Structures are given as structure tokens and as C-alpha cells.
Amino acid sequence: MISHVCLGVNEFDRAFAFHSAVMSALGHELKFCERDKPWAGWMAKDKPRPLFVIGRPFNGDAAQAGNGQMVSLLAIDRKTVDAAYDAALANGGICEGAPGLRPQYHADYYGAYFRDPDGNKLCVCCHDPVSE
């Protein structure tokens, strides 16, 4: 259903370092990075879509985070949720909810919430039960 998601950023190098760390923790690969534009995009190792893209707004205005907007990224397991959250906080992210179960969504929903250095809200989550 989703082709790509794009988040506006103001300081590309800072944003690139932040999102590179989170995407690496999730196992995604850099598809492109054009610093002169500036923009960059990541994808899963086994699929060309969807893409996760960051860049300066096309109209040249400052990027602004939206109230009520959030991008949720799927993790393969709970350990990966933890790793992505740790990478986010280690690279300038701000906690919006530590990793944990969120039974109000469903019994196996495990997620973490954070904001990137530009204020964009992200979630990393896993919907699967713990496998023993």
C-alpha cells in the first residue's frame, strides 16, 4: 500500500547520521544519498519498496514536525525494537515512550516511540509474540 514515506529535515548531516543509525539497527540498507539535493533513502534488503526518505523540503521552507503525525517502522522482533530505540537516543533522539508492551493496542504489540532531531515522531514496533 505504501510506496514511500518522506520526512523533512533541516540539518541534513545531523539527520542523516540519526536515521542511518536507526535504519541500520532495523537491518535496512541505504539506497541513495545525494548530499547536494540533500536527500537520502533506505529500503529493506529484500524489497525495493517502501522507501524511507529524508530531505530538505522541496519548497525550500524550513521542515516542521506535524502534530498528530507519526511514522511507524516495523521491526522483526522485540530485540530489534530495543536496538533501534537505543540507536535513536544515542544519536540525538528524544524519548516519547520507552520500549515495552502496549496491550491497549493488542496483547503482543511491543513498541518504542521517539523524535528525531527535527522533531519528527517515529515508532518502532513488533506485533509478534516472543518466540522461545
Rank of each mutant, 00 (worst) to 15 (best):
I2R: 03
S3Y: 13
S3Q: 11
V5A: 14
C6D: 11
L7I: 12
E11S: 13
F12R: 08
A15Y: 05
A17L: 09
F18M: 04
S20I: 02
S20A: 13
M23Q: 10
S24Q: 12
S24H: 12
S24C: 07
A25W: 00
A25M: 02
L26T: 01
G27Y: 08
G27D: 06
G27P: 09
H28C: 15
L30S: 07
L30I: 12
K31E: 15
K31P: 00
F32M: 15
F32P: 08
E34H: 15
R35W: 11
D36P: 02
D36L: 10
P38R: 10
A40Y: 10
A40Q: 10
R49C: 06
R49Q: 13
I54N: 01
G55A: 07
G55D: 05
G55N: 09
R56S: 10
F58Y: 13
N59S: 12
N59R: 04
G60M: 06
D61G: 09
A62F: 06
A65T: 01
G66N: 08
G66T: 06
N67M: 09
Q69T: 11
V71C: 13
S72V: 00
A75W: 06
I76P: 04
D77W: 02
D77C: 04
R78N: 04
K79Y: 05
K79M: 08
K79F: 03
T80E: 02
D82Y: 04
A83C: 03
A83K: 10
A84Y: 00
D86A: 15
A87S: 13
N91E: 11
N91F: 05
G92Y: 06
I94N: 05
G97H: 04
A98Y: 06
A98E: 15
A98S: 14
R102A: 00
R102S: 01
R102H: 02
Y105L: 04
A107W: 02
A107V: 11
A107T: 15
D108Q: 13
Y109E: 12
Y109W: 14
Y110G: 00
Y113M: 05
F114Y: 12
R115H: 06
D116Y: 06
D116P: 01
N120H: 13
N120W: 00
K121L: 13
L122T: 03
C123T: 08
V124E: 01
C126T: 09
P129K: 11
P129E: 07
V130R: 09
S131V: 14
